[in-house]
Amino acid sequence: MRLHFDDEDEDERILVCLRPPYRGFAVIPVHKCTCTSDQGYEQFYLMGLAQLYCKDHPDRAGIGLCVACGATVCDECSTRVDGVIHCKPCLLRTVRQAPASRWRSWSAMGPAILFVPLAYAVLFLCLYGLAFLIAVIPKMQDFVESNFLTP
């Protein structure tokens, strides 16, 4: 899929620019994006947004989309972390829910207990079947040769 510009109302178009300096879903008017000149047309993925308003302040124009929830946020409601826009609830949630890296795998324990034996069993059956096939094929060949191919 290729997102493309709408030919009408060029100045009214708003881009979702994915490149620096507006990294991360910054909604900006076309003429304000400084990376058009060197990055070119392909760097933009136009959503054709006519106008967007802040999710919490319907009277204020949005300046960007939250990288986590995709909601439109105004200048006051947004926080940039490493150049990427976050809304406040998502930022708080990210900070609170960021698990200690050592224990991130605990959520895989349950599914692993379920899926690993299942995959193990399937794999064992396949390997055992392979051995069976390898052992049986020569025997079948002998049978066919002795019963059907010998005059």
């Binding site: 050592r102 795998s105 599914p111 692993a112 899926f115 690993v116 995959a119 399937v122």
Partner: peptide
Amino acid sequence: VLHLPTSLFYGAVSTLGWF
């Protein structure tokens, strides 16, 4: 190695997906 359960989980799902 620290995240062994994760790799086993993903590996098992991947294997089942193949079969």
